[in-house]
Design a protein around this nucleic acid. Structure first.
Length: 364
DNA sequence: AAGTCGTGGGC
DNA sequence: TGCCCAAGACT
């Protein structure tokens, strides 16, 4: 295959819009122009696939149709709607952002990328996306898709952000900047995919330099992640005499911030997991633990879970216990009430396993 | 500037 | 199974 012709911006826009207008997915936020809704969709889409985010977006808009609805909701409720979507700081930040919009911006979402960046959780990409889509600002939104598409189009091994910005400034459509940004991303998400791009179906295949050179799969270059460490946790599933479960709310910041979990602690080298679980229960305010007298006490099924930068094995143990003095972060929860708390996936699994184990022992 | 921060899906 | 990756932001 010979070197493709120099890329003509007008021709590229035309080919791209032809693809986007015909084959672009019909996504709920593409039917909206409300800046609040565009903002929510863009935050949900950070590091998250469209198919994953879409049901969350629908539920979110049912519960928080307007910025005021979000601002007036509790943190717990916001986290509950976000439960399972991951990167929970996004939920906290958009909730904080809703308050900031009302208090500092008079209830109006900022209309320029520069001002949008004042909002927590809004970085360069999200600011460009919201500004271009909701307000028509002519500014690029460069995400991982755009980076890959441009790297292949121009056969660039490892383009920097400055270089990508410069390319986009020249290519972006002045009349439909938001659609242009979305079209580039849509191409990256559906055609120009990382592992198996379907170049035959690509509207830009005749001008793609990587395709001409056969370097699609090496553009852009990726670095391997390395092995993630393994951490093991002893987990205390403590039932009090009134059949309530001892649960703890994680600190606002950090991993799984603000979510509810069973008390747990890292297993020390050589330590039995049951002992680590007892330690966790004691720290959480449960005393006089009994693990032998009850029908539903003892070891439960271990739960493996993979986080972004480590793997975890949770080793839960069920106890009967008596509350003494609970730390501020802990509460006794009626099992049915637990379903209404925002919990991480692995903790939800532990709860579910405990429920089945208890049911099984009662029937047996 | 490299590490932190979730989860589900594809191969 | 294990690894990669995803409409990134923040520190």
């Amino acid at each position: 295959m010979s070197t493709p012709p120099r890329i003509d911006p007008e021709g590229l826009r035309c080919a791209l819009f032809g693809f986007y207008d015909r084959d672009g997915r019909d996504l709920p936020w593409r039917r909206e122009s409300d800046p609040y809704r565009i903002w929510v969709s863009e935050v949900m889409l950070q590091q998250t696939r469209v198919e994953t985010a879409e049901p969350y977006y629908r539920r979110w808009m049912e519960r928080f149709p307007t910025l005021d609805d979000l601002a007036e909701a509790s943190r717990d409720e916001v986290l509950k709607v976000w439960e399972g979507l991951g990167y929970y700081s996004r939920a906290r930040r958009i909730h904080d952002g809703a308050h900031m919009v009302r208090e500092r911006f008079g209830g109006e979402i900022p209309s320029t990328a520069q001002a949008l960046r004042e909002l927590p959780g809004v970085g360069e990409y999200t600011a460009g996306a919201v500004a271009s889509i909701a307000f028509g600002e002519v500014i690029p939104a460069i995400d991982g898709n755009a980076r890959r598409v441009l790297a292949r189009l121009f056969d660039l091994a490892d383009p920097g952000l400055a270089e990508l910005r410069a390319i986009m400034e020249e290519l972006i459509d002045r009349e439909r900047p938001g659609d242009f940004n979305q079209a580039v991303m849509e191409l990256g998400a559906t055609i120009c995919t990382p592992r198996a791009p379907t170049c035959a179906a690509c509207p830009l295949n005749s001008v793609c330099r990587a395709r001409a050179a056969g370097t699609q799969l090496d553009r852009p270059v990726t670095k391997s992640r390395g092995k993630t460490p393994l951490r093991e946790f002893g987990v205390a599933v403590v039932l009090d005499p009134e059949s309530r479960l001892l649960m703890r709310r994680r600190p606002e910041e950090g991993l799984l911030g603000g979510l509810w979990e069973f008390p747990n602690t890292s297993i020390r080298p050589g330590e039995p997991s049951a002992q680590a679980a007892r330690r966790a229960a004691a720290e959480a305010g449960a005393h006089r633990l009994e693990s032998s007298r009850s029908a539903a006490a003892g070891p439960l099924q271990p739960v493996r879970h993979t986080f972004s930068h480590f793997r975890a094995i949770y080793r839960p143990h069920a106890f009967n216990g008596v509350p003494v003095s609970l730390p501020e972060s802990c509460r006794w929860i009626e099992p049915p009430e637990a379903s209404g708390l925002a919990m991480p996936v692995a903790q939800r699994k532990i709860l579910s396993n405990w429920g089945w184990a208890a049911r099984k022992k009662i029937l047996a």
